[in-house]
Computed example of a mutant assay.
Amino acid sequence: MTLTNYWWLLIWMFTGGILLEILVPRRRELVCGKMEERWDTVSALILVIPYIIWAGYRTDAFGDTRAYRMAFRNAPTQLGQLTEYLSTITKDKGFSVLTVLVKCIIGNSDVLFFLIIATIQLLCIVYICRKYSCNYWLSMFLFVASTDYISWMHNGIRQFLAITIVFASTELLIKKKYIQLILIILLASTIHASMLFMIPVVFIVQGKAWNKKSVLCIIACIIALFFVDQFTDILDTALSTTQYSGMVSDWEEWGDDGTNPIRVLVYSIPMLLSIIGYKQIKASDNPLIHITTNFSILAFGTALLSMSTSGIFIGRMIQPTFVYAILILLPWELKNIFTEESSKLMQIFTVIGYVAFFYYQMHITWGML
């Protein structure tokens, strides 16, 4: 069950998607006050099952899988040992608690542990995309073809687990139930502290698309880009008393030269399309589309800043905003800001473009194809 030919990531997405589209009729349901066509829950789950299995049976060849595997194997098997074990953990203890709880239930199978984590992550993605995306298949395709599936479910699983938990709370964001949402963010931050970044973000993205708050944020990122040395000094001082102290010196020591400009271009697509389709976004009067547009602006600003600072650290701040921009906003833009004929053509171009990016990232950058 271990994935050895990574082309299967796209092969299954196309073949499975076509079969499910033909065999399983869509159903109509109420979404944000409007009747919309959506995939059936069972077919939506069937599409992602192989990706859960591949994430569970992955090898140590990519990313930090080996580190997570060793951490799981070294975790205690009895709850009575939890307190002593946590005293040895210096950060993000929520994930360590989850690791021990899971290990107490399933035993020493690290494969089963990875399967459980991958299941939680993808179920959160499926729940939101099936409900809120106007094109569920395209959302899942973009997640895989952008290589975010590999980047986050075969690597960086702790942060992505935290991201998907918050992403699953999108309804609270739409309804402005801030207390419940902030409590969930605080819970997720025990798994990965970077999620604290989302507390101010949930207020910034509220309101109309391209409002003053989101525009000021992108201006701030551009200013920081021009004064990057001063920005890194301020960042180093601000983080000096946190678990991320020394982050700036770490990325300089590791030779981290920032996020790849081609990936930054990919991250910018939803934001650029929101400029082209601003009238349609405004006319839609859809609070989720306005929110995700503002997320796309923050994603672009952060990506731009990470290009000249750190792809490992600053680049990681993109993903909590990018999941909204690529999984929800981009399919809506392709469907709604063009004519019906142009929309189909743009979706074809998007699929071709992302397949090309998949090849570039997997073959040229990572050497995995």
Results as ranks from 00 to 15, higher is better:
Met1Leu: 11
Tyr6Arg: 15
Ile11Tyr: 14
Ile11Ala: 09
Met13Ala: 14
Gly17Ala: 06
Leu20Glu: 04
Glu21Gln: 10
Pro25Gln: 10
Glu29Met: 15
Glu37Phe: 11
Ser43Ile: 11
Trp54Phe: 13
Thr59Phe: 05
Met70Cys: 02
Gln81Ala: 12
Leu82Trp: 13
Leu86Ser: 10
Ser87Val: 10
Ile89Trp: 04
Thr90Ile: 09
Lys91Thr: 15
Lys91Asp: 13
Lys93Thr: 11
Val97Pro: 14
Thr99Gln: 11
Leu101Asp: 09
Leu112Glu: 05
Phe113Tyr: 15
Leu115Pro: 03
Leu115His: 07
Ile116Glu: 01
Ala118Ser: 10
Leu123Asn: 10
Cys124Arg: 08
Cys124Val: 02
Val126His: 07
Ser133Pro: 13
Leu142Cys: 11
His154Arg: 02
His154Ile: 02
Gln159Leu: 01
Phe160Arg: 11
Ala162Phe: 11
Phe167Asp: 02
Leu172Gln: 09
Leu172Ala: 07
Lys177Cys: 04
Ile179His: 09
Ile182Asp: 06
Leu183Lys: 08
Leu186Lys: 07
Ile191Arg: 13
Ser194Lys: 05
Leu196Lys: 12
Phe197Leu: 11
Lys208Leu: 12
Trp210Thr: 02
Trp210Cys: 07
Asn211Gly: 14
Ser214Trp: 10
Leu216Ala: 15
Ala220Pro: 13
Val228Asp: 07
Gln230Arg: 12
Thr232Val: 15
Leu239Trp: 06
Thr242Cys: 12
Gly246Pro: 05
Trp254Gly: 01
Thr259Ser: 10
Asn260Arg: 03
Val266Arg: 02
Pro270Gly: 05
Leu272Glu: 03
Ile275Arg: 13
Ile276Val: 13
Lys282Gly: 03
Lys282Met: 06
Ser284Phe: 12
Leu288Ser: 06
Ile289Phe: 01
His290Pro: 05
Thr292Ala: 08
Thr292Val: 05
Phe295Asn: 08
Phe295Lys: 07
Ile297Tyr: 10
Leu298Pro: 09
Gly301Trp: 05
Gly301Tyr: 03
Phe322Cys: 02
Ala325Arg: 05
Ile328Ala: 01
Ile328Gln: 00
Ile328Ser: 00
Phe338Gly: 04
Gly353His: 01
Phe357Lys: 07
Tyr359His: 09
Gln361Thr: 04
Gln361Ser: 11
Met362Thr: 11
